[in-house]
Amino acid sequence: MARKLILGSSSPYRRELMERLHLDFETFKPEIDEQALPDETPQALVKRLAEEKAIKVAGSMPNAQDALIIGSDQVAVCHDEILGKPHTQDRAVEQLMSFVGQRVTFYTGLSLYDAREGKSQTVCEPFYVTFRSDISEAEIRRYVALEQPLNCAGSFKSEGLGTALFAELSGKDPNSLIGLPTITLLELLRNVGVNPLAQQD
């Protein structure tokens, strides 16, 4: 019998990525404290939060005791500063203005928690975005008004018009920018015997 698979997120973007993988899954949003610990690195922060989210789902969602649970978290880092979600238009404009001509690193934490075994596989996936050096403030304000990226780390949506702000992308998996590195997720799932290419209809 196939193991229940749970995505510990309410993000429609992560849900859409999961749907593309032809996996049966449920969603559940865990509530955790996402504040960084003193002197915590961005890599350690996203790994800890991704794992905490997955474990929280196991303890909060009914009938999750035998499930495989996916947790994910993301931050952007520019000028050695951790940047979260902007939540307001003014903050989004401010973030994007600070990115002009800069390379921004996005760290995505990914955790696959096996609730039956009480074991996690947790990784941090980096991805790099270089922003155009000739972006005007008017372009940025128009972009924010059009796409309203207020709940996105880094204040843009790479699956939409956000690419108009970019000069270059580099990294293992562009899906990391959307919040779920699917190449690595499929590796972690194969480690526990889940492979959508091997499953029978």
Rank of each mutant, 00 (worst) to 15 (best):
A2F: 00
L5V: 03
S9T: 03
S11G: 13
Y13R: 15
Y13P: 07
L17R: 08
M18R: 12
M18L: 14
L21Q: 13
F28Y: 15
I32A: 04
E34C: 10
D39M: 10
D39C: 12
E40F: 04
T41D: 06
T41Q: 07
P42M: 02
Q43N: 08
Q43D: 14
K47V: 12
K47L: 14
R48M: 11
R48L: 11
A50E: 07
E52A: 13
K53V: 05
A54L: 01
A54G: 02
V57N: 11
A58C: 06
G59C: 02
M61D: 12
P62A: 15
N63P: 01
Q65S: 15
D66M: 00
L68N: 04
I69R: 09
G71V: 06
V77T: 09
D80V: 04
K85R: 09
D90G: 12
A92E: 04
V93C: 13
S98Q: 07
F99G: 11
F99N: 08
G101C: 02
G101Y: 00
R103C: 08
Y107P: 01
L110M: 12
L112Y: 00
D114K: 04
A115D: 07
A115H: 04
E117P: 00
E117H: 02
P126S: 09
P126W: 02
F127D: 05
F127Y: 15
F127I: 10
Y128I: 01
V129K: 08
I135V: 10
Y143R: 03
V144W: 02
V144A: 09
A145G: 11
L146H: 04
E147T: 05
P149S: 13
P149T: 08
F156L: 15
S158N: 08
G162V: 04
T163Y: 01
A164P: 00
E168L: 15
L169G: 06
K172E: 14
I178A: 10
G179T: 07
G179V: 05
G179A: 09
T182E: 03
T182D: 03
I183D: 08
T184R: 15
E187Y: 00
L188K: 12
V192C: 15
G193E: 01
P196N: 10
P196K: 07
L197I: 00
L197M: 06
L197H: 05
Q199K: 14
D201A: 14
